[in-house]
Design a protein around this nucleic acid. Structure first.
Length: 376
DNA sequence: ACTGCCGGGGG
DNA sequence: CCCCCGGCAGT
C-alpha cells in the first residue's frame, strides 16, 4: 500500500507551487483537487486533511508537497472522481491522540455540513421537533461525497482558494472517523455527532440517546427515565447552539447573507490537541443551524433576538444552558460605579434654545458642564 | 452627527 | 472664580 502511493514525483512537481499540478485543468477538472498550501492556510478544509493520520513519514515534506493528497492523488490516483482521495490506509501507531484530532475534524465536518444545509430554506422548516429532517439532510452530503467531489463545499472554499476545492473528508475516512467513537453503531449510515449545549460541557457524543442520557444524568440530574423524557434533553444538546447570546452575537456579526461563507475558517487549525478545544472553537462558529426543536425557518430565527428566543422557548421553561449567559440589561452606569451619568432625559439649554441663543443657556451649559437649569 | 458633560486648562 | 474646550460616551 504504502509503496504504491508513496511520494511519486509528479512531472510538475519540480515547481515549488504544488498547486500547479492539482490545478492543472488538463489533468481532470473534477478529479482530486490538490490541497491548498500549508495547513495554516485559511482554507476551510485545508487543515483537515493534514489532521488525518496519514502522513506518517516526513517524506512528503521532502517532496515539497505539504499534503500527500496531491502527490498520491495526482500521480497514482486515476483521475476518476469516484476514485476519490486515497484514504489513510494505516493509522498512526500512537493513534489515540491522533484520533482526537480526527474526531475534531469529523465534528467540524458534520457541523459545517449541517450548517450549509440548514442554511437552505425549508430544510429545517419542518414543524416536527424530531431530528429526522436535519439528520437526513446531514447524511446526504456525506453520501454524495463519495461519488462526486461536489459536496457544495466550494461555496465556502472560494474564500481562500477559489479554484481549488479543498477535498472534503473522503467518505471512507468520514466513516472511519465517525465509526470509531461508536463502534457498535458503526453500521448505520447516519453519522452524526451530538454536542451537549450545557455551558461548560460541550461534550460530544455520537448518539442522540447517549447524549440524552448524558444530559439527563449529568446536567438534569435525573435518573435515566426514557419514558418521561419529553424530548427535553433534545433541547439541550442539539448539534448546535441554542439561543446563546454569544451565538446570537456571532450571528449578527456575520454576514447575514452568507452564513455558510464564514464557516470554512472554522476548520483551518486542526492542530487542536483535544476535542475540548474543538468544541469551544465550534461554539462561536457553529451557528446558523437551527435548534432542533425550532419550527421556525433558520433565516427568521436568526434575525431578531425576540423572534429567536420566542421560537426557542415555546412552552417549556428556558433550559439552563441558554439562560446562564443571559444578557441582562445590567444598568451599566448605576451599578458599575461609572461616574458618568446615564444622560439626562430632559432637554438641556442647548437643545431648548439652540446654538444661536447660546446667551440664554445656563452658565453650566455654556461651560459644557452639567446643566443646572434643566435638572433630571 | 448630535448632545450632555467630565476633566482640564488659562486668565 | 469665570470661561472655554478637548474629548468621551450615549443617542
Amino acid at each position: 500500500m504504502e509503496a504504491e502511493r508513496s511520494p511519486v514525483p509528479v512531472p510538475g512537481c519540480g515547481r515549488p507551487p504544488p498547486r500547479a499540478a492539482g490545478r492543472d485543468p488538463a489533468a481532470s477538472p473534477m478529479s482530486v483537487p490538490a490541497p491548498p498550501q500549508g495547513p495554516a492556510v485559511g482554507g476551510g478544509f485545508a487543515g483537515l486533511e493534514f489532521a488525518l493520520p496519514q502522513e506518517p513519514e516526513p517524506r512528503a515534506a521532502d517532496l515539497g508537497v505539504p499534503g500527500t493528497w496531491a502527490g498520491a492523488g495526482g500521480a497514482a490516483g486515476p483521475p476518476t472522481p469516484s476514485a476519490h482521495i486515497p484514504v489513510p490506509a494505516q493509522r498512526d501507531p500512537p493513534g489515540k491522540s491522533r484520533l482526537d484530532e480526527v474526531m475534531a475534524a469529523a465534528a467540524l465536518t458534520s457541523l459545517s455540513t449541517s450548517t450549509l444545509l440548514l442554511g437552505a430554506p425549508a430544510a429545517a422548516c419542518s414543524p416536527e421537533p424530531g431530528l429526522e429532517p436535519w439528520k437526513e439532510a446531514l447524511v446526504r452530503p456525506l453520501g454524495s461525497c463519495s461519488s462526486s467531489g461536489d459536496w457544495g463545499w466550494d461555496l465556502a472554499s472560494d474564500r481562500s482558494s477559489p479554484s481549488i476545492p479543498s477535498p472534503p473528508l473522503p467518505s471512507e475516512a468520514a466513516h472511519f472517523l465517525f465509526g470509531e467513537p461508536a463502534p457498535k453503531k458503526r453500521k448505520s449510515s447516519v453519522r452524526v455527532l451530538f454536542q451537549c449545549l450545557w455551558k461548560r460541557c460541550g461534550k460530544v457524543l455520537s448518539t442522540a440517546s447517549g447524549m440524552q442520557r448524558h444530559i439527563r444524568l449529568v446536567h438534569l440530574g435525573r435518573q435515566a427515565e426514557p419514558e418521561q423524557s419529553d424530548g427535553e434533553e433534545d433541547f439541550y444538546y442539539t448539534e448546535l447552539d441554542v439561543g446563546m447570546d454569544v451565538l446570537t452575537d456571532g450571528l449578527s456579526s456575520l454576514s447575514p447573507a452568507s452564513p455558510a461563507a464564514s464557516m470554512p475558517p472554522a476548520s483551518p487549525r486542526l492542530e487542536l490537541p483535544e476535542p475540548r478545544t474543538l468544541s469551544s472553537l465550534l461554539h462561536p462558529l457553529a451557528l446558523p443551524p437551527v435548534p432542533v426543536l425550532s419550527p421556525v425557518a433558520p433565516r427568521e430565527a436568526r434575525r431578531g433576538d425576540d423572534a429567536y428566543q420566542g421560537c426557542l422557548a415555546p412552552t417549556r421553561p428556558e433550559p439552563q444552558p441558554t439562560t446562564v449567559r443571559t444578557c441582562v440589561p445590567t444598568p451599566p452606569s448605576r451599578l458599575g460605579a461609572s461616574p458618568r451619568k446615564p444622560r439626562g432625559d430632559a432637554k438641556k439649554c442647548r437643545k431648548v434654545y439652540g446654538m444661536d441663543h447660546r446667551h440664554l443657556w445656563c452658565t453650566a451649559c455654556r461651560w459644557k458642564k452639567a446643566c443646572q437649569r434643566f435638572l433630571d
